[in-house]
């Protein structure tokens, strides 16, 4: 099958750079699968899992997918390979975040804690599946 260049970058590092035949991306309005020679396309992402060639799975949160003649580029605000996530550590973090939400003193702090908690919950949901 034809391959196309795919790059997955987060602000902190490049997670994947190379050829892929099929990449599933959690776009804001539903998952999309990108194959070679996809029409130019651009979408915001929601929290979810990027699957590369049905093998590598990575959790991404926020960001953009950009399909152009040069291939697919995913700019994620946060991206972690699923096998690097430790379920136990994660549930600990979720508990902490829940406490932060409860203990938050100002609206601003609560909103920030809530956003963090949502991110962690999305990550948890991603590894459960």
């Amino acid at each position: 099958m034809a391959t196309f260049p795919f790059e997955l970058v987060s602000p902190e590092r490049v997670l994947f750079s190379g050829e892929a035949t099929q990449v599933v991306v959690p776009a804001s309005e539903g998952e999309i699968t990108v194959l070679a020679n996809h029409a130019p396309f651009m979408s915001a992402l929601r929290s979810g899992v990027v699957t590369i060639d049905n093998a590598q799975r990575l959790f991404v949160r926020g960001g953009f997918a950009d399909v152009s003649a040069a291939g697919l580029t995913v700019l994620a605000e946060q991206a972690v390979p699923l096998d690097e996530i430790n379920a136990e550590a994660l549930s600990g973090q979720i508990r902490n975040a829940e406490e932060d939400v409860r203990d938050a003193k100002s609206d601003e702090a609560r909103a920030r804690a809530q956003a963090k908690l949502d991110g962690l919950n999305a990550m948890m949901a991603a590894i459960r599946n």
């Binding site: 602000p11 776009a27 804001s28 309005e29 029409a39 130019p40 396309f41 651009m42 979408s43 915001a44 926020g62 960001g63 953009f64 152009s68 003649a69 040069a70 605000e77």
Partner: peptide, 28 residues
Amino acid sequence: TKAAYEYEPDEAEILSTLLPRNIAVQIF
């Protein structure tokens, strides 16, 4: 590449989330 892009949601909305993020990235 002035190809006909397809945007999801629409262009303005993407731009409005992308711009604040761009500022964060530049600062980072």
